[in-house]
Design a protein around this nucleic acid. Structure first.
Length: 826
RNA sequence: GCCGAAGUGGUGGAAUAGGCAGACGCGCUGGACUCAAAAUCCAGUGGGCUUUAAAGCCCGUGCGGGUUCGACCCCCGCCUUCGGCACCA
């Protein structure tokens, strides 16, 4: 009698068992190899979506697989719990952010548990927990001590809807990454992390990450944007000089004007008291008053004006008029550029608009290029001309020679510039880690003493409908004694960017309850690095670069041993429905809860892993989900049919007696091989699952073909056991249940991963393909040890082959043993 | 504009090292079981053509070339889609 696959009862039973037995709680075991599997922790929005299910299913397969392969696996989960949605809920619905967040976390823990993920819940952390943010603040203070934090005024990105500033990384297409509102420029005094000090290391470190996708490394590489060049000092009348940065020192003879950024401090100095003073001021206030919509809508139209001053080209003494223009950025290089309109597209456009002279100093090597056009500047390498002592030299040599000359004569020096900017971390928001800083009238900026941490985020706050931070109006929070002079001081009311919280959480997982240190150094050394990190590619730059920066900085401060946090990175694709990303606004979401309710967690996991390889986007398909459900039902029925007759069999060496048994045995070992390699080496979970399905088909086929009284039950037991064990990482609940039903003590996840026997993989005969001139003409069965000569003879003697060889001469024969023979004939 | 990825049946995808294109699943068609349906099981399923049939032939991995005995795979030139960057001197 076979009973029904009752996934509800099975899943509840085993989830309860795992929790009761503490199966997934781990501690350091120095004798055992460790494996740290980590999925990006979620923001507790209150709802698990399919992207999460996919992310965590991928991680769970890996964690369970590694455990079964003898590793001591750390597989933690936590909450990126600070952030705007909690505040919006407070403003709109009057629910305190902490309450809203706590409730969401509880809800999501439930959802994660019903999916059967193997997390060590004892290590759960939440970034909004004072025990956690205390250490975020403590790290801020260490960064402060090491001059990695500073406060500065500059032009920043302001999101009027979120009423807060944003880091460069959080501005996408001039819009706020979170809410899509167009960002404005504002001049504000803000806190920065000196990530630029690590620019070189962040860049060079990418070479030591072979386990990262090339795509992500390229994106980080571009973002850091290292460029080598020369700082050249252009003298002004009166002895002062203007430094400009250029990567094309070889075009120095082609300079026809110079451009300063409108904000450049020299602008004011050079125009004061001249007839240019007022028009220049007007121009500057006009450009600066523009917000980013206007600037971008003008399609990068270059605008500027002459400011009445001249510099001298240090190489030849030419007089160089000084302009200001909106296309020169104050915060890159020196905020001043030497303009070479002959060989720089931007300079050319500007020169044409304002009738500035164009001088050609580099000729293309190949004359046939249509370089006649005056619309395009020749910016490639070529041969220097009209350039004094470097004339006639190819660009790389010309650049090197003139650079040497510049350095020798003291006209400038080599410099390396980065596009990466320092990381702006202040946010004018309530629900975040308070920045542990005090402002004292007497002592100025004073860091909070370490023993006074944490600076608690007050819970009794009132929200303004404007979104303005309630911390500004909370007297108890605001007022504090200065630790230095004991006088009155005011607290910093800005909180930290939530990316600060998530830049070190993976370290905290190694010792989440540690009271006296940010991490327990020994535990950190045991568990780090993260062996496999899994998450969405949208974090390719932001989170993944900040986390690398933190890891390097903490290492330098002697707190941890790791240089890079994530040894291997897997960026999973999106979950699509009807060709578009699932989203509430498009109304094409599928709720994981409903799927689990209808088919069970095992089916949901199986489908999501089977439908596409992890890196690719996955198209949701309800009918295919049912296919996975049917498969699990078939497995269930197969095991039910045999459980009574195989349960009592003691595990003993099984013997294969005939061809059918031998075939099944071979498929079994081949499946073990394929699944092991697909999970462990390639992350091709989809093909691993296909292999398991084929294995099931083979077992079922054997059972159907062999009369009941001739079946080798010992072999069936072995096959079914392996089928269940191979399924265990993907569909843990049904595997656990079937494992018990065929007479084993739980847990199947404590089983050693099966090994294949290469002897069983051997075949006696193989089918070889016969090609004539590369076209498939025939097949033949030969014994595996047939020699090449015999294969040729056999192939040529076949009628189907010989009919293609009439009146032709055999030129060549290629034999790939065991696969194919190709006869080339003319 | 620059950088990167992808393009394979009706469909999701497979082909691990240049060697049988389409594994596995979905869908579809036919059949079995059933009074009937659902569920389940069995068989077939890239396109075109020839043949009474067995079977055979041709075409086929976005397009056009190339290398090779042999190309989904390597090279060159395009097209399309998606992602990243975008006045960085």
């Amino acid at each position: 009698m076979t009973d029904r696959y009752d996934f509800k009862a099975i899943e509840a039973k085993w989830q309860e068992y795992w929790e009761r037995e503490g199966l997934y709680n781990v501690k350091e075991e120095p004798g055992k190899p460790k494996y740290y599997a980590l999925e990006m922790f979620p923001y507790p929005s209150g709802n698990l979506h399919m992207g999460h299910v996919r992310n965590y299913s991928i991680g769970d397969v890996l964690a369970r697989f590694k455990t079964m392969n003898g590793f001591n696996v750390l597989h933690p989960m936590g909450w990126d719990a600070f952030g705007l949605p909690a505040e919006n809920a407070a403003i709109q619905h009057g629910i305190p952010p902490s309450k809203w967040t706590q409730e969401n976390i509880m809800e999501m823990v439930e959802q994660l548990k019903i999916l059967g993920f193997s997390y060590d819940w004892d290590r759960e952390i939440s970034t909004c927990d004072p025990d956690y943010y205390k250490w975020t603040q403590w790290l801020f203070l260490q960064f402060y001590k090491h001059d990695l934090v500073y406060k500065a005024e500059s032009s920043v990105n302001w999101c009027p809807s979120c009423s807060t500033v944003l880091a460069n990384e959080q501005v996408v297409d001039e819009q706020c990454e979170r809410c899509g509102t167009t960002v404005h420029d504002r001049n504000l005094e803000q806190w920065y992390f000196r990530i630029t000090r690590y620019a070189d290391r962040l860049l060079d470190g990418l070479d030591d990450l072979p386990g990262w996708p090339e795509k992500v490394k390229i994106m980080q590489n571009n973002w850091i944007g290292r460029s080598e060049g020369v700082l050249i000092h252009f003298p002004l009348e009166g002895g002062e000089t203007v430094p400009v940065f250029t990567t094309r020192a070889d075009t120095l003879y082609g300079v026809t004007y110079m451009v300063l950024a409108p904000e450049h401090p020299l602008v004011d100095k050079l125009t004061r008291g001249t007839k240019y003073e007022n028009p220049v001021k007007e121009f500057i206030s006009e450009t600066r008053g523009m917000d980013n919509i206007q600037r971008t809508s003008e399609e990068h139209e270059k605008e500027g004006m002459f400011i009445g001053a001249y510099a001298e080209n240090p190489i030849n003494g030419d007089e160089v008029p000084i302009w200001i223009a909106n296309y020169v950025l104050m915060d890159y290089g020196t905020g001043a550029v030497m303009a070479v309109p002959g060989h720089d597209q931007r300079d050319l456009e500007f020169a044409q608009k304002y009738n500035l002279p164009v001088k050609i100093v580099v000729n293309p090597t190949e004359k046939n290029d249509d370089n006649e056009s005056t619309i395009e500047a020749f910016a490639d390498d070529g041969i220097s001309v009209n350039s004094g002592f470097i004339s006639g030299l190819p660009t790389p040599e010309a650049r090197e020679k003139i650079t040497e000359y510049i350095e020798e004569k003291g006209l400038g020096e080599r410099q390396i510039n980065f596009r990466l900017r320092d990381w702006l971390i202040s946010r004018q928001r309530y629900w975040g880690t308070p920045i542990p800083i005090l402002y004292c009238e007497k002592c100025g900026i004073v860091p909070v003493q370490e023993e006074d941490l944490p600076v608690y985020l007050p819970k009794d706050v009132e929200f303004k409908p404007t979104g303005e931070s309630p911390l500004k109006y909370h007297d108890q929070f605001l007022n504090a004694a200065c630790p230095e002079c004991k006088g009155m001081a005011t607290r910093e009311t800005d909180t930290m960017d939530t990316f600060v919280d998530s830049s070190w959480y993976f370290l905290r997982y190694t010792s989440p309850q540690e009271k006296n240190h940010v991490v327990d150094k020994n535990k950190e050394r045991y568990w780090m690095n993260v062996d496999q990190y899994i998450g969405g590619v949208e974090h390719a730059i932001l989170h993944l670069m900040y986390a690398r920066f933190f890891t390097m900085a903490l290492k330098d401060m002697g707190m941890i041993s790791a240089e890079e946090p994530f040894e291997n990175l897997l960026t999973q694709g999106m979950v699509l429905k009807d060709g578009a990303k699932m989203s509430k606004s498009k109304g094409n979401t599928v709720d994981p809860k409903e799927i689990v309710n209808e088919y069970g967690a095992d089916t949901a996991r199986l489908f999501i892993l089977f439908a596409a390889p992890p890196e690719r986007d996955l198209e949701w398909n309800d009918e295919a989900v049912e296919g996975c459900y049917r498969f699990l039902n078939r497995v269930w029925r197969l095991v039910s049919t045999y459980e009574g007759s195989i349960k009592g069999l003691t595990p003993e060496a099984y013997r294969v007696k005939d061809e059918r048994e031998k075939d099944l045995n071979r498929v079994m070992h081949n499946t073990i091989k394929r699944v092991t390699e697909d999970i462990g080496e390639r992350f091709h979970y989809n093909t691993a699952i296909s292999a398991i399905m084929e294995f099931y088909n083979a077992i079922q086929g054997y059972c159907d073909q062999q009369p009941r009284n001739k079946q080798n039950l010992q072999l069936i037991k072995e096959a079914v056991s392996n089928l269940v064990v191979l399924l265990a990482p993907f569909t843990p609940h049904i595997a656990e249940d079937l494992w018990e039903r065929i007479g084993n003590a739980p847990s199947v996840h404590g089983q050693a991963w099966p090994k294949y026997d290469s002897a069983a993989l051997k075949v006696d005969d193989v089918t070889m393909v016969i090609q004539v001139n590369g076209r498939l003409r025939d097949r033949m069965n030969v014994s595996v040890d047939t020699s090449e000569e015999e294969i040729k003879d056999k192939a040529l003697s076949r009628e189907r082959v010989s009919k293609y060889l009439n009146n032709k001469e055999i030129v060549r024969t290629i034999v790939i043993p065991g696969r194919l023979i190709n006869i080339v004939a003319k």
